[in-house]
């Protein structure tokens, strides 16, 4: 078990194994996203209350789920980096942060755009939207802190600590925002909580969520590989690898 983890922590080994994994994840992501999009946009029935605007759910919900998963993944990677000094974990965390922020933004934007036909305004201080907004600020803080340090290692460790602090706080923030929301505007019609969605509606949603996850994994693998090339460029195996690609192409 430990041997495996340490092997996984070696950039060279990770680079080799991820080369074999990433085409599968990219293919799966493209397939699932295409199937889910066509299914959700064209074949799923329209909602009897919201009409076709409900089709935003197929990008809003996966993005929102991913936005949260990315933060947790980032924090877990931060712990692995802080405790076991495994560099790969930090490379992954560095790569996940901007993508998580992008997904948070997608969730916010699609939520606002969905709010217009549903509530009649672009922005409602709805509990979910508000905690998403706060989460976006947390992401931006982690990204900014990492960039603010002159030495990469300090930046990595500081960002890991902040990600950890953030992940402890997210449930507290969510709970307080929910509480605040029920106090200030009771019984609003929430976007996604609805009684018993029919199968034809949630099945494409499931496909989209899986597609987003595959995309996330594929992108993280690819960009972590890039990060390895960047940070380990002085290592011999990277130099040989670069020389090899030069000869081929």
């Amino acid at each position: 078990m430990w041997a495996f983890i340490h092997k996984l922590g070696s950039p060279k080994w990770f680079y080799a194994i991820s080369a074999r994994l990433q085409p599968w994840f990219w293919a799966l992501a493209i397939l699932l996203l295409l199937v889910g999009s066509v299914w959700g946009l064209v074949f799923a029935p329209s909602d009897y209350q919201q009409g076709n605007s409900f089709r935003i759910i197929y990008v809003h919900v996966p993005a929102a789920i991913l936005a949260q998963s990315c933060f947790v993944t980032m924090a877990v990677a931060g712990v692995i980096f802080l405790v076991w000094k495994i560099k790969i974990a930090d490379m992954a965390a560095a790569v996940i942060a901007p993508f998580g922020a992008a997904m948070t933004f997608v969730a916010l934007f699609s939520g606002a755009v969905w709010g217009m036909p549903t509530w009649g305004t672009w922005w409602v201080w709805d509990a979910r939207l508000t905690s998403m907004l706060i989460q976006l600020f947390l992401y931006l803080g982690v990204i900014a802190l990492r960039g603010a340090f002159a030495s990469r290692d300090s930046g990595s460790r500081a960002a890991s600590v902040l990600a950890l602090v953030g992940v402890v706080n997210i449930p507290i923030i969510k709970y307080s925002v929910d509480w605040w929301n029920t106090l200030h505007q009771p019984a609003t019609f929430t976007l996604t909580e609805r009684p018993a969605m029919p199968v034809e509606m949630w099945l494409p949603l499931l496909v989209m969520v899986l597609g987003f996850y595959c995309f996330f994994i594929a992108l993280t693998l690819t960009r972590t590989r890039n990060e390895i090339l960047r940070r380990e460029s002085a290592k011999r195996w990277v130099r040989e690898l670069v020389a090899g690609t030069a000869r081929r192409g």
């Binding site: 999009s37 946009l41 009409g51 076709n52 605007s53 089709r55 935003i56 197929y58 990008v59 809003h60 993005a63 997608v106 934007f109 699609s110 755009v113 969905w114 217009m116 036909p117």
Partner: peptide, 13 residues
């Protein structure tokens, strides 16, 4: 009639 909303959300994504 929901085109601007649906397509802008999907488009940005």
């Amino acid at each position: 009639g929901h085109a601007p909303y649906v397509w802008s959300a999907w488009g940005l994504t």
